[in-house]
Design a protein around this nucleic acid. Structure first.
Length: 492
RNA sequence: GCGCCGGUGGCGAAGCGGCUAACGCGCAGGUCUGCAAAACCUGUACUCGCGGGUUCGAUUCCCGCCCGGCGCUCCA
C-alpha cells in the first residue's frame, strides 16, 4: 500500500515511495539539546514515528537520519552562564531526550548525527558555496550565504520576498551583511565561547548548514523526504534548500512534511508564556506514557492539536478499553473454527485502518474501524459466537494497530518509575503527585493477598468485608473485575 | 498590515457535493452481577459559526462577515 502524504513543496498530496531497491531516505530535524523536551517537541517526533512505523508496516526499508543540534547560541549562552564545558552540558539533555523517546515508544532513527561531530563536513560545504560565489566572509570572520545567488528562495514556504527592501527591518551595519536576508553559515568565535579552528576560520557553524551537511553525508545530495515542525519551514528549511541546491544544482529533498503546532488550552505553548509541559511533568502528574502517546498521535499531523488534561484522561480510558479487550481475547478460551461474519468484519476493519493511514496519515480516521471491531467482537464473545480462528485474526488486526499506535502493549511502568526516580534525584520531589505515590504504594503480593481474602469472604457471602477490601484497593488505584474466568485486576 | 489554517453533539475529532453526520471520552436509562467493574443495548447534532450565492441537491464549492489559532524573529 503506497503512502500518500502532503508535500509542502508542491502543495499537494503526493505518493511517497523509495527508488526501487533502495531504502526510503528520510531526514528529520531533531532536538536542540539545551533543555528537557516539551510535549510540543514530542508531538512532532511522535508524528514522524507514525510515518516511520506505517512505512515499516508496509515493508518499506528506511534510512532515517535525525540530527542532534549540540551547538547553537542558546547552548553557548547556557554553558557560559553555568560555567561548564559544552559537551558536559549537552550530554545531559541528550540523554534525557533519548529517555523521553523511549518512554513514548518513539523508534530510533537508523542514524543519529551530532552537529559537533560533523564540523569538517560543514566547512567543506561552506567552501563549496564560497567557490561558487554564493558565500562571503565578513570582516570579523563570519560567513554568510548570499541570497541573491538563489532566485528560487521562498519556494517551500511560498513566500514572495521580492518586495522586501533590504534594511527595512534590520540595521545592516550591525550585521555587516550584504543583504538583510542573508543568513549565517559560520559565526566567528567570540572570546570565551566554544569554537573550532577550521579552513574557514575560527568559529562555529550556523544552524542551517548543519542540517544540509549531515543530510548530504548520510543520504546523498538528493533524497526522498525531509520532515520537521511547521515552524522550521521558514527560515530553516528554506535556507537548507538554498544552500544545498546552490552547491549541488540538484533538488535537495523531493518531499517535505511539516507537523503542525500543538496548543495548550488554545494558546501556543512557549517558554516565555510558561504554559509548557515537559514529558516528565505529565508523568509526575500521574498520566501514563501510553495516554500521552495516544493523545498526541490521534489528531492528524496536519491539524493543530489543542492539548488539555481532559484529552489525556480520554486517551487513558480509550486505552483501557483496548487493553481489556485484548486481554479478553488473549486469555479467553474459544471453540475451534471460524465465524464468517467476524472474519469479514476483521478484514474490513484492517482494510479501513490501513487505507486511512495511507491517506496522508489520517490517524483519527484509522482508529475508528479498530474500535468498531472491538465492539463487534465483544458482542460476539458475549453471545458465544467468537471462534479460535476469529480470535487469531482479530489479534493480528490489533497487532497492526499497535505496530503504529503502540499503546495496547503495556509498557507504562518503566517510564513512570524512571520519572519518579529522576524527580527525587534532581530535587523535584514536590512535583510528584501524591495520588501517583498512593497508587504505587501496594505491591502485587499485597494485592494478591487481599484478593484471596476477598474471595474467601465472598464464598462465605460476607459481602460487607468483600466490598470493604474492594474499596481499600480502589483507594490505592487497584481496580478489580469479577468475571466468569475469575478475578482480573489492574492498576489505574 | 500581509499570508496560512480552523470553527461539526457536553468534550475531543473524522467526513468535504447526494448514504441513518464515523470513532473515542462523558452523561442518562437498561441487560448482566450479591453489589460493583468489565461488556453489551438504547438515548444523547431534525444538523455541521453567521449571511448570501452556485447546483436538481452543500456540513462539503464560491463570496462576505464574525470568532479562534498560527506564521512573517529564536522556536517542534
Amino acid at each position: 500500500m503506497t503512502l500518500r502524504l502532503f508535500n509542502t513543496l508542491t502543495g499537494e498530496v503526493d505518493a511517497l515511495a523509495p527508488v526501487p531497491g533502495e531504502p526510503l531516505r528520510i531526514y528529520a530535524c531533531g532536538p536542540t539539546v539545551y533543555d528537557y523536551g516539551h510535549i510540543g517537541n514530542f508531538r512532532t517526533f511522535l508524528q514522524i514515528d507514525v510515518l516511520r512505523r506505517f512505512l515499516e508496516l508496509n515493508g518499506v526499508p528506511l534510512r532515517h537520519v535525525m540530527n542532534i543540534t549540540d551547538v547553537d547560541d542558546r547552548i553557548i549562552q547556557n554553558t557560559v552562564a553555568a560555567g561548564v564545558a559544552i559537551h558536559e552540558y549537552t550530554a545531559r539533555f541528550e540523554q534525557a531526550f533519548f529517555e523521553d523517546l523511549d518512554a513514548l515508544r518513539i523508534e530510533r532513527p537508523e542514524i543519529i548525527a551530532r552537529a559537533t561531530e560533523h564540523i569538517p563536513r560543514m566547512v567543506a560545504l561552506i567552501e563549496r558555496l564560497a567557490a561558487a560565489g554564493a558565500a562571503y566572509r565578513t570582516e570579523e570572520g563570519s560567513w554568510y550565504f548570499r541570497l541573491a545567488a538563489f532566485p528560487e528562495y521562498g519556494k517551500l514556504s511560498k513566500k514572495d520576498l521580492s518586495g522586501m527592501e533590504d534594511g527595512a527591518r534590520v540595521d545592516l551595519d550591525r550585521y555587516e551583511k550584504d543583504s538583510a536576508r542573508d543568513f549565517a553559515l559560520w559565526k566567528a568565535a567570540k572570546p570565551g565561547e566554544t569554537s573550532w579552528d577550521t579552513a574557514v576560520g575560527r568559529g562555529r557553524p550556523g544552524w542551517h548548514i548543519e542540517c544540509s551537511a549531515m543530510a548530504m553525508e548520510y543520504l546523498g545530495e538528493s533524497f526522498d523526504l525531509h520532515a520537521g515542525g511547521e515552524d522550521l519551514m521558514f527560515p530553516h528549511h528554506e535556507n537548507e534548500i538554498a544552500q544545498s541546491e546552490t552547491a549541488t544544482h540538484k533538488p535537495f529533498a523531493r518531499h517535505w512534511m511539516h507537523v503542525r503546532f500543538l496548543l495548550v488550552d488554545g494558546r501556543k505553548m512557549s517558554k516565555s508564556e510558561g504554559n509548557f509541559f515537559t514529558l516528565r511533568d505529565l508523568l509526575l502528574k500521574g498520566y501514563k506514557a501510553s495516554a500521552i502517546r495516544l493523545a498526541l498521535v490521534s489528531v492528524p499531523y496536519r491539524h493543530q492539536l489543542n492539548f488539555t488534561f481532559d484529552s489525556l484522561t480520554d486517551a487513558t480510558r480509550a486505552i483501557e478499553r483496548l487493553r481489556t479487550f485484548h486481554q479478553r481475547l488473549a486469555a479467553g478460551s474459544f471453540a475451534p473454527g471460524e465465524n464468517a461474519g467476524l472474519q469479514a468484519a476483521a478484514r474490513a476493519a484492517e482494510a479501513g485502518y490501513m487505507a486511512a493511514l495511507a491517506d496522508d496519515l489520517n490517524t483519527a480516521e484509522a482508529r475508528a474501524p479498530v474500535f468498531e471491531l472491538v465492539r463487534t467482537a465483544n458482542t460476539a464473545i458475549d453471545e458465544g459466537q467468537l471462534r479460535c480462528g476469529d480470535r487469531d485474526l482479530i489479534l493480528s488486526v490489533l497487532g497492526k494497530f499497535d505496530a503504529v499506535f503502540d499503546v495496547i502493549g503495556d509498557h507504562d511502568e518503566e517510564p513512570t518509575r524512571r520519572a519518579i526516580e529522576w524527580a527525587r534525584q534532581s530535587g523535584r520531589e514536590s512535583d510528584i503527585a501524591p495520588e501517583l505515590l498512593a497508587r504505587r504504594s501496594m505491591t502485587d503480593e499485597q494485592v494478591e493477598m487481599l484478593l484471596a481474602e476477598r474471595a474467601q469472604a465472598k464464598k462465605q457471602r460476607n459481602f460487607a468485608r468483600a466490598d470493604q477490601i474492594r474499596g481499600e484497593l480502589a483507594e490505592k488505584g487497584i481496580v478489580i473485575e469479577d468475571s466468569k474466568e475469575g478475578v482480573r485486576w489492574k492498576r489505574k
